[in-house]
């Protein structure tokens, strides 16, 4: 699978850039010349119904790897629809689809940047969108490849960052060098057992106690806590001693049907490497705007 970089007809003096004018100006001030808008795509089949989810409700999912937690009903046989067991498990295949799609699109973007002799890619934007109906998810990364003004192409792998403009200037000024954008996803499926189901439906409390009060739903709390821990650990494992700045962590909960939930956590950030200690910064001046 090869990308088609448009670089063939790009002469050294002609460039495209996705940067706003202000970011463009900041780039020039940093001695970085935009050489081209670079992109990478990957369309992946994306199905929830792979592996474990197929047997949902019949027997517990036996995870090969990843987080799995079982919940046993304390009541014994009550009724046919009574959920005697419940599970939280990490949907590793979704995480794999995601990391594979992202990594392929990323590699293709880098390929274009390398082809243009770029030293880095700034102002990266990544999107994942459902394409032509369900079952296909498209990973799209793009950014502006830059070169050091007046130097020849380098052979090193280009660095990447979500930042551009003055924010990137400050990263350099603060003693950091950008390394790469980092993104990861964690997905935990929740199959509620009887107590969780009753509590979610609001009936557990009044059923087991005489005065109305509130009770924490442990299984859901665990799913949220785990998905957040996993997504951070995945990102952390890619850092190798570097720092991750400007992280965005978002968590979404999706209910497929009663008692069947997915908690998905997504994380994005800029991996940077410290190359010298902080220096005394110019003291910022507090201002009030006269509008």
């Amino acid at each position: 699978m090869t990308a088609h970089p448009e670089s063939a007809d790009v002469t050294p003096s002609s460039f495209t850039s996705g940067l706003s004018v202000a970011d463009f100006a900041a780039c020039l001030a940093m001695g970085l010349e935009p050489v081209g808008l670079v992109q990478g795509f990957c369309a992946m089949q994306s199905s929830n119904y792979a592996v474990g989810a197929m047997q949902r409700g019949l027997s517990p999912y036996q995870g090969q790897s990843g987080y799995v937690e079982n919940y046993q009903c304390p009541h014994g046989m009550v009724a046919g629809e009574h959920r005697m067991w419940g599970q939280n498990y990490e949907q590793t295949w979704i995480e794999q689809t995601w990391s594979q799609g992202f990594a392929s699109a990323y590699a293709r973007m880098l390929e274009e940047a390398t082809h243009l002799g770029a030293v880095g890619v700034v102002g990266v934007v990544d999107t994942q969108s459902a394409l032509v109906g369900a079952g296909v998810i498209e990973f799209h990364l793009r950014g502006t490849a830059v070169r050091l003004a007046g130097s020849s192409a380098t052979s090193a792998t280009p660095w990447t960052t979500y930042l551009a403009g003055q924010r990137l200037v400050k990263v350099f000024e603060a003693g950091f060098a950008p390394v790469s954008v980092v993104a990861s996803v964690a997905s935990v499926r929740v199959w509620a057992y009887c107590i969780t189901e009753y509590l979610m439906g609001g009936s557990g409390v009044s059923a087991w106690s005489s005065s109305p009060s509130s009770t924490e739903i442990d299984q859901i709390v665990r799913a949220h806590t785990q998905s957040r821990a996993i997504v951070r650990a995945t990102a952390q494992s890619q850092l190798r001693g570097d720092k991750l700045q400007g992280v965005q962590l978002t968590v979404a909960q999706h209910e497929y049907e009663r008692g069947d939930l997915e908690v998905q956590a997504m994380l994005r950030g800029n991996r940077v490497r410290r190359f010298r200690d902080y220096e005394a910064l110019p003291a910022p001046q507090p201002t009030v705007r006269l509008s």
């Binding site: 030293v119 050091l148 090193a156 924010r167 400050k170 350099f172 603060a174 060098a177 952390q236 190359f275």
Partner: peptide, 28 residues
Amino acid sequence: VAALVRETLSAHTSNVSSASTTSDLSID
């Protein structure tokens, strides 16, 4: 700034800090 960027990008190998940290703070 331009000289600083050039210097930073050439001295890429040295890594002063050792512990990985993660933060949702912007550089500002």
